[in-house]
Amino acid sequence: MTSAVPNALTLARIVAVPAVIVLLLLDDGADGAARWWAVGLFMAASATDYLDGYLARKWGVVSAFGKLADPIADKALVLGTLLTLVIVDGLPWWPLLIIGAREIWVTVGRLLVASGTVIAASPGGKAKTFAQLLALWLYLLPGMPGWVDTTAWWVLMAATALALVTGIDYTVKILRAARAQRGSGRAAA
């Protein structure tokens, strides 16, 4: 097998992001057909988050493209959808700010030390992503009873807390990797 299938799934997730955003903006909180299309597309895109990595590992075709594009696709799907829900449904902006700041910092930090260290996704980071996707899926569902929105809120709060905790964990790992790289650079000189 080649990495073409997992990479195509990652690309499909990236392409789905603007489509989900446009559908939500077109619906503008009316809970109509565009919202249902956004839900279906979001769910399909979320499923590719698991499937692309699973296939790449199973087939032994993990690629440099996949390692870079997969987390970018995840972040784009979560942040793009959450931003649109803040605009369209009036969700509070501060979970978006916390999650967005964490995602940007961890991505930049990983790239800063990428030449000498691979900082793998942690179980906490995977739990954060799952909680984010679940919260967004619950918020996207149109016409649900109030308890669904309440559940979505608490899942989003858990995802925000996980973003903070894992952000600190990744910061420690990034700083250790940077120190180790500086130390090995001095030793080589």
Score class of each variant (00 low, 15 high):
25 L>Y: 12
102 R>N: 01
99 I>C: 06
163 A>I: 14
172 V>A: 00
100 G>N: 01
99 I>N: 04
138 L>E: 08
124 G>P: 09
120 A>D: 15
155 V>W: 07
102 R>F: 00
107 T>G: 11
184 S>Q: 14
146 G>P: 09
37 W>F: 15
153 W>K: 11
86 V>C: 10
59 W>F: 03
51 L>D: 07
70 D>Q: 05
170 Y>D: 03
159 A>S: 10
58 K>P: 00
68 L>N: 02
175 L>S: 04
110 R>E: 01
6 P>C: 06
34 A>I: 06
105 W>C: 01
173 K>L: 15
32 G>A: 12
44 A>Y: 04
50 Y>W: 14
43 M>K: 01
48 T>S: 14
37 W>C: 15
185 G>D: 12
53 G>C: 08
2 T>P: 13
32 G>D: 09
32 G>M: 10
133 L>G: 05
10 T>H: 01
26 L>W: 13
178 A>L: 05
38 A>P: 08
38 A>Y: 02
34 A>S: 08
63 S>R: 04
184 S>D: 12
94 W>K: 03
47 A>W: 08
80 G>M: 11
86 V>R: 12
159 A>W: 08
34 A>G: 03
178 A>Q: 08
4 A>V: 10
124 G>S: 09
129 T>N: 11
55 L>D: 02
111 L>Y: 12
54 Y>Q: 02
26 L>N: 13
98 I>N: 11
148 V>T: 13
40 G>D: 11
67 K>M: 11
82 L>T: 01
2 T>K: 06
26 L>G: 05
63 S>L: 07
86 V>K: 12
115 S>E: 14
61 V>K: 05
135 A>R: 13
151 T>E: 09
128 K>A: 08
28 D>V: 00
81 T>G: 09
100 G>A: 02
139 Y>I: 14
136 L>G: 04
123 P>S: 10
158 A>I: 00
118 V>N: 00
97 L>A: 15
38 A>H: 03
47 A>L: 15
114 A>F: 09
135 A>V: 11
137 W>L: 14
133 L>V: 13
87 I>M: 06
28 D>C: 07
112 L>N: 05
174 I>G: 03
16 A>S: 11
132 Q>Y: 02
44 A>C: 03
169 D>N: 14
82 L>N: 07
35 R>H: 00
42 F>L: 08
116 G>N: 04
157 M>A: 14
78 V>S: 12
14 I>E: 13
87 I>E: 00
181 Q>M: 15
169 D>L: 10
167 G>L: 06
108 V>G: 01
172 V>Y: 08
55 L>F: 03
61 V>Q: 09
12 A>H: 04
106 V>M: 03
12 A>Q: 02
75 K>R: 06
66 G>K: 02
63 S>P: 09
